[in-house]
Simulated scan of single mutants.
Amino acid sequence: MKALVLTAIQRFETQDLPTPHIGPEEVLIATAYSGVCGTDHDLYAGRPGSAPAKPPIVLGHENSGVVAGVGSEVTNVGIGDRVAVDPNIYCGECLYCLTQRPELCDRLSAIGVTRNGGLAERFVAPASVVYALPGSVSLKAAAAIEPISCGVHGVDMLSLRPYQKALVIGDGFMGQLFVQILQAYGVHQVDLAGIFDDKLERNRQQFGVIHTYNTTRESVPEDAYDVIVEAVGLPATQAVAVKAARKGGQVLMFGVGKQEASFAMNAYDIYRKQLTIQGSFINPLTFSDAIALLASGKVDVEPLISHVLGLEQVQEFLDGKISGVSKAVVRIQD
């Protein structure tokens, strides 16, 4: 089978690999689409994602496809089913798994990170992380279920009420997803700050955003929002997020920054305003919610997918040679 293999830092090779063997509780999936995200940029550059990737490895952790084979003990899906795959696999035995925090698992493994993923014609996943798709969800859209599920976990970490005003900082793919997810969870006003006028306008016109701020020429108001989602991962935007929170506010630090990055906070303001500053890591048990959001139409992801790539274009994209990308997915096969 054809596969794109990361053989070294910033080096891919197209290889002909044997079709992987499946065990009794595993599923063989013919990949349809595989999304490419910031984690793949990090893994390509030799930085860790949810876990370090050790070449040679096939990346691709945002995957949809069709079941091509099932192990003898698999009962939740069958051959020919259209599916999406949660890449994260937990040990079920460590302290964090046993105290209902599996995302912090000491022995976390992940498809497309620590084991071969979807940038290949076939890949294998445990049946426990394979989800059948409703007919209303396309395979193209299903490649975004994993990032949607990460957003769902983020909002699950917050206490949301309809009266709240929310601000999303970052008009990248995840920031735009958070606009729709917060709305789906009942927040009555969601505003967006970013740097691209076309994206800000689309979210006003298509997704009901009330106020937008282009931070290249406008300031985000301080002490103004009950909920702030920081979806950039830069110290400057993280500092803005904290300042934007009004009394009793909640700040979700979702954007993934550099490991050595830090920013300054005024400790008295955190005390005085009784702020909650919350991190969010991966997507524990949120795939079903993400699928439901897509199937119901409360999250519409296809307008955000700007590029459909071939395997041969992945390295070009990760090298920054393809511009104007909102979200890229790789079409492996129809």
Rank of each mutant, 00 (worst) to 15 (best):
A290Y: 14
S64Q: 14
V190P: 08
Q315D: 10
R217Q: 08
L177A: 02
Q313C: 07
G170M: 04
P147V: 02
D106H: 12
L98Q: 15
D81N: 15
G35W: 10
I145K: 05
A193N: 08
C97Y: 01
Q278R: 14
P221T: 08
Y163N: 12
Q238K: 03
G310V: 03
A231G: 01
A68W: 06
P162E: 06
K273R: 14
C105N: 05
V232M: 01
F178Q: 04
A68F: 09
N266R: 07
E260I: 02
S149C: 00
A142D: 13
V168N: 00
K54R: 14
G255E: 03
V124Q: 08
F178H: 13
C37D: 09
F287H: 13
G233Y: 01
G80M: 03
K321A: 08
V329Q: 11
G60M: 13
P284L: 03
G154N: 06
T99A: 03
V66Y: 10
V256G: 05
V314H: 04
I195W: 04
S136C: 03
D156F: 05
P235Y: 05
F123D: 07
E230L: 01
I169E: 01
E73L: 07
P126K: 01
V85F: 00
M174H: 11
A53C: 13
Y185T: 01
N63G: 11
P52L: 09
P55L: 02
V190H: 00
Y33Q: 08
F287I: 09
P48S: 12
K2I: 10
L160E: 00
Y90E: 00
V168M: 00
E312P: 01
A239L: 06
Y44R: 09
A141Y: 09
I277Y: 06
G38E: 10
V58T: 14
N214K: 04
R204L: 00
G194W: 11
E146Q: 07
K140T: 11
V58M: 14
A141I: 07
I282V: 08
S288I: 02
L4T: 01
A244R: 14
E13K: 13
E62Q: 15
G194S: 07
M157S: 07
A110N: 10
A193I: 09
V242R: 02
